[in-house]
Amino acid sequence: MENNIRVLVVDDSAFMRKVISDLLNKHPRIHVIATARNGEDALTKRKLNSPDVITLDVEMPIMDGLETLKILMKENPIPVVMVSSTTKEGARNTLFAMEFGAIDFVAKPSGAISLDIEKIEQQIIDKVIQAAKAKLVRSEHEATYVVQSKKDNRIKKVRAKKIVAIGTSTGGPRALKDVIPKIPSSIKAPILIVQHMPPGFTLSLAERLNSLSEVIVKEANHGEVLQNGTAYIAPGGYHLSVQQKGNAFLANVDKQEPRRGHRPSVDILFESIATLKDVESIAVIMTGMGADGTEGLIKLKESGSCYAIAESEESCVVFGMPKAALRTKLVDEMVHIQQISERIMNHF
């Protein structure tokens, strides 16, 4: 039998501390060993109790979740699952938390004190278990809060001969930060991204990546023409696929049934690209739990011109999705996250 997962629950609300603790303690493998009311209290309780995983509220008085996380990761890294509100500020700070080293996050269903927290019971249990198994990856550079200006006059209406498609899940926001900002604006292809995330967070992810990148990064809008030098992120809770109309490629955003529990689904994106004519695709599968993207990769390879890249186990937070893709024996190369952008650009 696997060892119990010792958890420290951190939240400024006594009600939320109790409810989250009760939810986690229902699982036979999880044991909440302590709770903390703010960041300072969390740092003390961590030293006293040596937890395996910490659930950390983003917004707290005295010392908030971001400052706490930075200290935790600097002193002695530990798997952390952020617990966030779905406000724009909460989503933005959650993205910074991913950059600072948090493994994953869950969104409170209805604000700082969510009386309906049981809606995410299974989600928070699953993510704590994943975090206990995940590998901590140190960032080369600390995240900053700088938001740079973006000139939109670089968009050119040129038919895409190539399409780059990226799929990722747990650990993905941080991995995308290691890939997208290194791609030049001159890339002769649109980039389509599926990151498993709930509604309300993908817009902040797009804005954050946009502030760091040469390419334009945005949430995909239904029916828009895909442009070279632009990265389109599937909106949380919606599938993203590609349709062909004459010489143009259009983004299709819809709420069809989830695939293998995912919406957006990497498989659906990849499969749609497999139906396009006269297109060379570069498919990239990065860190994440499960096998999303594997079925779509098979379709892409059957369709003809597809070059497949998988992130190496060395740099993955969770090696599930790339490992599943590798089992198909259709992956052309497996590379460290720091080399993925270079490998993409080798095809241009």
Rank of each mutant, 00 (worst) to 15 (best):
A160K: 03
K161F: 05
K162P: 07
K162V: 03
I163S: 11
V164M: 02
A165F: 00
A165R: 07
I166W: 03
I166M: 09
T168A: 14
G171K: 09
G171L: 12
G172C: 06
G172Q: 03
P173H: 01
P173G: 09
P173V: 07
K177A: 15
K177F: 06
V179G: 08
I180V: 13
P181S: 06
K182A: 13
K182F: 14
I183F: 07
I183K: 06
S186A: 13
I187G: 04
K188A: 13
A189P: 01
A189F: 04
A189W: 02
A189M: 02
L192R: 00
Q195Y: 04
G200C: 11
F201T: 00
F201N: 03
T202L: 07
L205H: 07
A206M: 11
R208Y: 15
R208E: 10
N210E: 12
N210C: 12
L212M: 15
S213Y: 00
E214T: 01
V215A: 01
E219N: 15
H222M: 03
E224L: 08
Q227K: 14
Q227T: 00
A231I: 01
Y232M: 08
Y232G: 12
I233Y: 08
G236D: 08
G237R: 04
Y238A: 01
Y238G: 02
Y238D: 05
H239K: 06
L240S: 09
S241R: 10
V242A: 03
Q243K: 14
Q244H: 03
Q244M: 09
Q244W: 02
K245M: 12
K245E: 15
G246M: 09
A248D: 15
L250Q: 05
A251D: 08
N252W: 04
K255W: 01
E257N: 14
E257V: 14
P258K: 07
R260C: 08
G261R: 00
H262F: 12
H262Y: 12
P264K: 01
S265I: 12
S265T: 06
S265N: 00
S265L: 11
D267T: 05
I268K: 10
L269W: 04
L269I: 00
